[in-house]
Design a protein around this nucleic acid. Structure first.
Lengths: 348, 348
DNA sequence: CTAGCCTATGAAAGCGCTTGCATCAAAATT
DNA sequence: AATTTTGATGCAAGCGCTTTCATAGGCTAG
């Protein structure tokens, strides 16, 4: 039946391809391709014919084929721990906006704070052609870094900046940020501290925040047992539970530091439920300064992180890395303490 | 934007391909491919050799090539209005989890509530091989639906259920949900209502929520002018501003309904700032029941939406649609009113 | 022993695009 | 008028994979 080489284009059967467009517009596929990728290189008349054909067939390019032929995808990937709360939302939003200014598309995936899942997602993004990767924090299996290095995929670490690490990063110094906050807390007379943190395992940011607290306490000659810490997953509910646990202990702290705002807000809620008057009976602090922090009552004293700026710069750096520009020095962003209503003097 | 620079030499050595693996393992590419896709069809000894080679070369498949050859991507796309607040987060999370149970990958994109942007994103997802699409709400350019129909891409509408629409959907009835809430509000004696909503344009959910309010008011013989409405973009800040505006009017309402929790929380914050005692002087309600709602003080009375369930079912339905199963009846999920602390009797 | 059937594998034809090189007519230069 | 340059286009070779079809042995059954 089909001895004819030219396939008759039955438009209800298959999707239009570049070749179909070419045929319809009476040009070669090369020309159609050029219309799409560098329109200025084709004659206006031809161009018009081609676009008309594209329209008529409601053709859309096939990304996979394009990527394969051009060996370029113009996409970068990001793996964030979670999308469920908005900790990363603002930064990623800015990242994405800036990326698109540079003609790149962002693919986001989330790892649920699980290293294995992160690894899967990284591979998946690579398979999908990500030309660069944004990763949160430094801490992950070296094998993965090696893998990425072999593939020559630029990686930018963010949400953290550690002067002792050499790989490209843009973020803030978690030790320092928490250290500053703790100093402030100690100045206010607090001597017993509770700390609700994410699991310290596989999480350099959480570990460094802890370190910041410990260093400040040490400097103030406070013994380690004055720090009571509980690890839990990030969620308001878990923050509440952790708070209960801390307050169930023999010697109650006068201040509870949340490893992030979500945890702190959970603690705050439970504290109010339990009848604590914040900040008179007890102080609470957070970290990140997400919207949540401004909305609770009293509003949360927290460490402000320049999310948007971080995202924007991250995009710029990653793009330049992809374009083969030389390794720029990692960038440290400044955090500030955002004083609001939940931090006060230690009760008498 | 690019290209006036010499391209960086980033590949002296190339990445391992299927062919490389084949050579290394002394088999044909067909066999390697089979090892990857249906291992049971190749001899255990051969298989072992192949996997050893894969490992040795740290080979990873190229998604684009695979997609092109197999004409199958096992991915679905979703376009949500925003990632910035967590309105869609929970549902999408569940959607994604269920999808991966079925061997599918999710690609998410956000439209910032802009139709044009949504259209772009839809095309982008299609170009990337999405085999099915999850879209929020019904309201969009028919051309887009037509486009999708031509391409035979199943589309599932969610976050809304409208009995008068015929396309597949899973969600809740926005009219009804808001109608129920309003009835409750009227029962409490309120007669003047403020409504802060997202822009009604291009947003059937917002329009239907409004409709729900109007119908309830009509039934109670309240004139239209008893409803004061302001449209704004979703953000806490905008909620606050809108609230101010409403309260600046001549006749103040005794209850302010937020089109969603984010707006309601903004209103609540401003209300407290302005000295209103909630709910004694004024009632406020939200919609969605996101975490935010539980955390403010007083906690927000809102319409609870079964986010996770919606996401999970959406995944199941979409997968079955992709597998060519026949159009199932759209599914309506039940919303409930979540009474908390911000709704009370109208001040006398 | 031979026909018939598996099973494990390979050869090769695409999938839909980009791009280097070749071509050719028209414009610019001599 | 002859030559060179330029601009617009086509040809065809891949890009890295899957999959049909063919083939070669090894078994089973008669």
């Amino acid at each position: 039946m089909n001895s004819n080489k030219k396939k008759s284009n039955n438009s209800t059967e298959k999707l239009a391809t570049l070749a179909d467009v070419a045929e319809q517009a009476q040009v070669s596929t090369a020309t159609v391709s050029r219309c799409l990728n560098s329109p200025e290189r084709v004659d206006p008349n031809t161009r018009e014919r081609v676009f008309k054909a594209i329209d008529a067939l409601s053709y859309t390019p096939n990304f996979g084929a394009r990527a394969m032929a051009a060996r370029r995808t113009q996409t970068v990937g990001a793996v964030i721990p979670t999308m469920e709360n908005s900790i990363f939302a603002k930064g990623i939003q800015a990242f994405q906006e800036e990326l698109s200014n540079h003609g790149f598309t962002l693919l986001v995936a989330s790892s649920s704070y699980k290293p294995v899942r992160e690894e899967e997602q990284i591979k998946n993004l690579i398979a999908r052609g990500a030309e660069g990767l944004l990763l949160i924090g430094y801490d992950r299996n070296p094998v993965i870094y090696e893998f990425l290095r072999n593939r020559k995929i630029p990686v930018l670490v963010t949400w953290a900046f550690d002067p002792s690490e050499s790989r490209p990063a843009i973020g803030f110094n978690n030790v320092e940020a928490m250290n500053n906050l703790t100093k402030k807390i100690l100045e206010l007379g607090h001597r017993k501290i509770g700390f609700i943190t994410a699991s310290l395992k596989n999480n350099d940011r959480a570990r460094n925040r802890l370190k910041g607290i410990q260093e400040a306490m040490k400097k103030a000659d406070l013994p380690e047992r004055n720090l009571q810490l509980v690890q839990t997953n990030y969620s308001i509910e878990n923050g509440s539970k952790a708070f209960e646990k801390i307050m169930g202990a023999e010697e109650r702290p006068t201040v509870v530091i949340g490893g992030n705002d979500v945890l702190a807000v959970g603690a705050l809620r439970k504290a109010k439920e339990m009848g604590f008057r914040i900040p008179y009976d007890l102080s609470i602090t957070g970290f990140d300064d997400i919207e949540l922090a401004q909305v609770v009552d009293p509003a949360l004293t927290t460490v402000h992180v320049p999310h948007r700026k971080m995202g924007t710069r991250a995009a710029q750096i990653l793009v330049s890395l992809i374009n083969g520009e030389k390794f720029e020095k990692s960038e440290k962003l400044q955090t500030t303490i955002q004083f609001r209503g939940t931090l006060g003097h230690a009760p008498h």
